[in-house]
Design a protein around this nucleic acid. Structure first.
Length: 342
RNA sequence: GGAGGGGUGGGAGAGUGGCUAAAUCCAGCAGACUGUAAAUCUGCCCGCUUCGGCGUACGGUGGUUCGAAUCCACCCCCCUCCA
């Protein structure tokens, strides 16, 4: 899922996002409640209409901002109080208000409000945080159940840092409450790839078989391949868009930095075999020049290329699973990129 | 011909006796980015280096001083105004 935090996948036209193969994009409760405001978006016809994306949207609850904007917030049992990073005004986000905002936006998949703690975190603190997220999950479900529309879904979020007993406690409680899908949160927050995989190894085997499993905020291609091998279905990550704007491109052989001097005279495109115009029709020398000159088209083309790369990767994984040859796909990925993912 | 201003590291531009290998910005080189406070941030950026330092350096030459990019003399070059 490409990330479109503020009602736009940055540097991309919606039709081009769709052309990369994306079926669903993200929006963010926290950002959209501050600007332009959830009630305004609702009055303007909902987020799909507002941003001209007539396809599924998943909205994050604001839980990630509980961590990333830690210096601007105050956490209580009731919810989170934020000082807006835009104008400093105080706003309260409770599980109920988060769900209300996501309903006003019209999100197809809505997320419970949770606390996403940074790692490392000791066991007692991780337990207290996880149990707060569980209480918020109950409240989110109640709020969602009162007013949700047919076809809309609510996901719970498994927390518990890197402690097996806490992850199991969180997972069991959420499955008992009952959600349309479950996410694994609180990973890729500094613990490292091997540690993240270790957590998945003792979590995903206990998840319900018939419901989608969403690993929040992950990741780089190798993270995704490794997580799919461990039973994850859905991902979102800013990597393809943010890194694209910053000059990094993923290619079949791994990531490159287009601003590096060695590309100044490189006539080859990023991927001549691709069916994506951004990957196929522009030389690395031209892309290099666009970034060096500070031209907007550079970030636009690299974002487009990266999103297409990610969608191709996911399509390849889906086809490999359907054909029963995921192991071969992973072996080929490892050989091509040199990444350790198992 | 007369009067005045100025020459600093790739560029712009601070600095007017020691805290200065010399602010800051740009350019250049490299790195980071994982539920987006990010078209952002970080490091390097005279040479050598065992990263502790060492050597050269602020137009040129000479001088004053314990010590000079900073003060003095002469020379070279550039700019502005007047004629």
């Amino acid at each position: 899922m490409p990330v479109g935090t503020a009602g736009t996948v940055k540097a991309m036209f919606p039709e081009d996002v769709r052309a990369t193969g994306a079926d669903i994009v993200l929006g963010n409760t926290y950002h959209l409640m501050l600007r332009p405001g959830a009630e305004r978006v609702a009055a303007l016809g909902g987020l799909h209409h507002f941003m001209n994306w007539p396809r599924p949207i998943l909205t994050d609850s604001g839980g990630f901002q509980v961590m990333s904007l830690a210096s601007l917030r105050k956490l209580t049992e009731e919810g989170v109080s934020f000082a807006s990073h835009i104008d400093g005004a105080r706003h309260m986000l409770t599980p109920e208000r988060s769900i209300e905002i996501q309903r006003l936006l019209g999100a197809d998949i809505q997320m419970q409000l949770d606390e996403c703690p940074a790692m490392p975190i000791d066991h007692d603190k991780a337990a207290a945080s996880m149990r707060l997220s569980l209480r918020w999950a109950e409240r989110s479900k109640r709020a969602f159940g009162e007013k949700s529309k047919p076809g809309q879904a609510l996901f719970g979020i498994v927390q518990g840092a890197n402690y097996e007993d806490l992850r199991r406690e969180s997972l069991d409680a959420l499955m008992k409450t009952g959600f349309d899908g479950l996410s694994i949160g609180g990973l890729a927050v500094g613990e490292g790839r091997q540690e993240m995989f270790r957590v998945l190894d003792f979590t995903t085997p206990h998840m319900e078989k018939g419901k989608p499993r969403y690993l929040m905020g992950v990741g780089k291609p190798a993270d995704i391949v490794g997580a799919v091998a461990r039973g994850i279905d859905m991902f979102d990550c800013v990597a393809p868009t943010r890194s694209g704007r910053h000059g990094q491109a993923w290619t079949p052989g791994g990531a490159i930095t287009i601003t590096n001097a060695r590309f100044a005279d490189d006539e080859a495109p990023l991927d001549p075999a691709s069916d994506c115009p951004a990957s196929r029709d522009y030389s690395k020398a031209y892309l290099h020049h666009l970034f060096k000159a500070g031209e907007y088209l550079g970030p636009m083309l690299l974002t487009w290329h990266n999103l297409h790369y990610y969608q191709q990767l996911m399509q390849g994984l889906r086809e490999a699973i359907a054909a029963g040859r995921l192991g071969a796909f992973i072996a080929a990925f490892r050989a091509r990129t040199g990444e350790e993912i198992l």
